[in-house]
Simulated scan of single mutants.
Amino acid sequence: MGQDLLQKNVERTSVTKGSPECERAAEGERPISRIVGFQQDENGHWVVALSCGHTQHLRHQPPWQNRAWVLDPEQRAAPVGQVFTCGWCARGADGATLDR
């Protein structure tokens, strides 16, 4: 019934090939994407959609993850269009390089 918090949570991501909208940074710096919107996963957690085609969970699960702003539609809409450093792009990940 309870979830083992020590057990690794393997997340499945929506990963596509990089988009030309992903701003490539200078050598040695992380690539930069922009927030294009938000969606909910099958468990009701919020996921940010990025211009590079990758996604990133932005959960509100206090006390570990305190992001109450994702629960409010107006606050969620505010960062759309802003820069977001994509961890998948920084790793050079695309659909062919990630284990599923």
Results as ranks from 00 to 15, higher is better:
52 C>E: 02
55 T>F: 04
99 D>N: 03
89 C>A: 14
32 I>V: 15
2 G>L: 02
72 D>I: 04
95 G>P: 05
2 G>I: 00
61 Q>E: 06
37 G>R: 07
74 E>I: 06
20 P>E: 11
43 N>D: 15
67 R>S: 12
86 C>D: 11
76 R>L: 15
42 E>C: 07
70 V>G: 03
55 T>A: 08
68 A>T: 07
95 G>C: 06
63 P>D: 02
59 R>L: 14
100 R>Q: 08
58 L>W: 12
24 R>C: 00
7 Q>A: 13
3 Q>C: 02
63 P>A: 01
95 G>F: 08
29 E>G: 05
28 G>A: 14
41 D>V: 09
81 G>T: 02
78 A>Y: 12
59 R>Q: 13
47 V>P: 01
95 G>E: 15
68 A>W: 10
39 Q>I: 11
45 H>D: 14
99 D>P: 01
23 E>H: 13
43 N>P: 00
27 E>H: 12
65 Q>S: 11
72 D>E: 13
51 S>L: 12
69 W>R: 09
66 N>Q: 14
5 L>M: 08
16 T>M: 06
70 V>C: 05
32 I>Y: 07
78 A>I: 12
91 R>T: 01
75 Q>C: 12
6 L>K: 05
63 P>H: 03
95 G>V: 09
45 H>I: 06
51 S>G: 11
12 R>Q: 07
28 G>T: 11
50 L>I: 02
85 T>K: 09
17 K>V: 13
11 E>G: 01
91 R>P: 00
60 H>E: 00
71 L>E: 14
18 G>T: 12
82 Q>W: 03
84 F>A: 04
93 A>N: 00
10 V>D: 14
88 W>L: 15
80 V>P: 07
55 T>G: 03
5 L>W: 02
40 Q>K: 14
29 E>H: 11
36 V>Y: 03
2 G>K: 00
24 R>D: 04
13 T>N: 04
84 F>G: 00
42 E>L: 10
42 E>N: 09
58 L>Q: 08
81 G>D: 07
73 P>R: 05
84 F>W: 12
56 Q>Y: 06
94 D>F: 02
9 N>E: 09
2 G>P: 03
15 V>S: 09
74 E>K: 13
50 L>W: 01
89 C>K: 10
15 V>C: 12
61 Q>R: 13
37 G>Y: 06
44 G>L: 08
56 Q>W: 05
78 A>R: 15
25 A>K: 02
22 C>Q: 14
25 A>R: 02
44 G>E: 09
43 N>F: 14
87 G>Q: 11
78 A>Q: 15
68 A>I: 08
42 E>R: 13
74 E>F: 04
87 G>L: 12
73 P>I: 10
71 L>D: 09
95 G>R: 09
96 A>E: 14
93 A>H: 01
8 K>W: 04
49 A>E: 10
67 R>F: 10
50 L>Q: 04
58 L>A: 11
9 N>F: 07
15 V>G: 04
35 I>V: 15
77 A>G: 07
34 R>L: 07
4 D>S: 02
89 C>G: 12
47 V>R: 10
52 C>Q: 01
77 A>M: 04
73 P>W: 05
7 Q>N: 07
34 R>I: 02
82 Q>G: 09
68 A>P: 06
55 T>R: 12
